[in-house]
């Protein structure tokens, strides 16, 4: 490029030409062009300002702390299975209890002659593999409500706002546990500011009021009823009972290990019937399993049953009640089947 430009210059600046030579350019076009490009290049350069940092004492400077973190997904399958009738637990695989055995073991420690808390809460400590469809993606933390067949006193104050156009629904909704039940007049109150949405944790609506409810979408945001979260439907009683008696739980990812999620949810008290507790736990596990990401492998990895004040935790096998692994092919097949069934049903209705 450079030699070309210099030769061009010589052509321009050379004074004496014969009459036969015609000048190519009379103005300093080339110089002007170069000026422009230089300015562009200057503009492109971003000034990096080096900020001066004052003196920091050596003991206050950041040290790179190398912490070796242990994988939280525990795998003890390399350990032996005990053969003696009295053994030291640390050398062997964790004992796997049935749900009934685990509850019975907790009842022993909470017996009146020992801790004397026979009505203690029992918690399910559910460990999750939070990996999503790709290995670099992870399932977000989630909060859900699991419907359980046998209710217990969860000790929470849950305020539920119920909307329906049909007056006949009101007594049923109140009986089921709705704090405030109403129709279009409630919507007007909320718009006027007489009723505060912040006083209510859950908003449930019958589908017949949905067109009127749309005006509140901006006010309600995430609370706005939708069928996916189970807050919009035709069976008001079931929905309200789910939210007044259900188990509310949240899955939290580990701070350092993003593929490790943890749920700690109370599903009953120790003095409840063993079978009722078992059914509650199964309902909870099934609800958790319903948000399983579409990938192969386990989602729920381990389930421990705990009951304070005892520090004991008993491992149970959740895969007796839910599917351990769902292969992509199988899920696709089942989805296709469901679609076929739906189509058949629609055809039958028509």
């Amino acid at each position: 490029m450079l030699p070309a430009i210099s030769s061009l210059r010589t052509v321009i600046t050379r004074p004496n030409y014969g009459a036969s030579v015609r000048l190519l350019h009379l103005s300093a076009v080339t110089d002007a062009a170069r000026k422009g490009t230089r300015e562009k290049a200057r503009k492109k350069k971003v000034k990096v300002e080096v900020q001066k940092v004052g003196f920091i004492p050596h003991n206050l400077r950041d040290k790179k702390i190398v912490v070796s973190r242990v994988n939280k997904h525990v795998d003890d399958s390399w350990k032996q299975i005990p053969t003696d009738n009295c053994y030291v637990g640390r050398y062997y695989r964790w004992k796997v209890y049935s749900i009934a055995e685990a509850i019975e073991s907790h009842r022993e420690t909470h017996h009146p002659t020992m801790y004397d808390v026979p009505d203690a809460n029992i918690y399910a400590h559910v460990e999750l593999n939070m990996q999503a469809e790709k290995s670099t993606r992870f399932v977000d933390n989630f909060n859900r409500m699991a419907m359980i067949p046998y209710k217990f006193d969860h000790g929470e104050q849950r305020q539920i706002l119920v909307f329906s156009k049909d007056n006949e629904h009101y007594p049923e909704a109140r009986a089921a546990g709705g704090t405030l039940v109403g129709g279009v007049e409630l919507i007007k109150d909320i718009q006027n500011g007489d009723l505060l949405l912040t006083d209510y944790q859950y908003v449930i609506a019958h589908t017949n009021i949905l067109p009127d409810l749309v005006v509140l979408r901006g006010l309600m945001r995430k609370k706005f009823p939708n069928p996916k979260s189970g807050t919009l439907g035709t069976n008001l009683k079931e929905m309200i009972e789910k939210f007044s008696n259900g188990v509310s739980y949240s899955a939290v990812k580990d701070e350092h290990q993003k593929d490790f999620g943890l749920i700690n949810a109370c599903f009953g008290t120790l003095d409840m019937d063993k079978k009722h507790l078992e059914e509650n736990l199964i309902a909870l596990l099934k609800d958790i399993d319903s948000v399983r990401p579409k990938r192969e492998g386990k989602f729920i990895t381990r389930v421990l049953l705990k009951s304070p004040p005892s520090k004991e935790q008993f491992k149970i096998d959740p895969f007796l009640h839910i599917a351990e692994e769902v292969s992509n092919k199988a899920s696709k097949k089942s989805a296709a089947k469901n679609e076929e069934q739906l189509e058949e049903q629609e055809a039958a209705v028509n």
């Binding site: 009295c86 637990g89 640390r90 004992k95 073991s105 022993e108 004991e312």
Partner: peptide
């Protein structure tokens, strides 16, 4: 039960 709490497993018969 006390043994189980400290990680030793056995039966009542032991």
């Amino acid at each position: 039960v006390s043994l189980r709490k400290v990680g030793f497993y056995c039966d009542d018969s032991c």
